[in-house]
């Protein structure tokens, strides 16, 4: 995919970090992790596929729920995927996974956004209490 997407880089980083870490930690020891990025008209989908068996849970939602039975794993408390899901929600996206006999694929879907101006500066009252000493008068 050549086009750039507009998103919150910190949240996106944490989502991908957690999902990739999960794939590396719980995939087969000698297996590979395959990342595929595709784009539709309204969304970008990042699929992270590893060889191995699926999470040992009764319901999918448990994998993305903090401290849910079965969500904790050998490599941690099982918080990573719940954090990824929360962050996906904050970006108006979603996260899901599919399991087949030999692989597990986590899919992160994020809506494509129009470029918007830097709203962090626009309207921020961060500078409100700074004085106007030395200001330019126009």
């Amino acid at each position: 995919m050549e086009e750039k997407i507009i998103s919150d880089p910190k949240k996106l980083y944490l989502i991908l970090k957690n999902v990739l870490a999960n794939a590396c930690d719980y995939g087969d020891a000698n297996g590979s992790v395959q990342v595929t990025i595709s784009k539709s008209e309204s969304a970008v989908t990042i699929a992270i596929k590893n060889q191995g068996h699926g999470p040992n849970v009764e319901y999918k939602a448990q994998v993305f729920t903090r401290f849910a039975p079965g969500a904790e794993g050998e490599h941690g408390l099982g918080l990573g995927l719940s954090i990824a899901r929360e962050l996906c929600g904050l970006l108006d996206g979603s996260i899901d996974y599919e399991v087949d006999e030999t692989t597990v694929t986590f899919t992160v879907t994020l809506p494509l956004q129009e470029a918007v101006a830097d709203s962090e500066a626009c309207g921020s009252n961060e500078f409100l209490f700074e004085s106007f000493d030395d200001a330019i008068e126009l």
Binding site: A121, C122, E126, F127, E130, F132, D134, A135, I136, E137
Partner: peptide, 20 residues
């Protein structure tokens, strides 16, 4: 970025570049 203050008494705008 810019911080502006529009003084309606004189019709003048004070402007400072945002430092951060």
């Amino acid at each position: 970025g810019r911080k502006i203050q529009f003084d309606l008494e004189r019709g003048k705008v004070l402007m400072k570049y945002a430092t951060r």
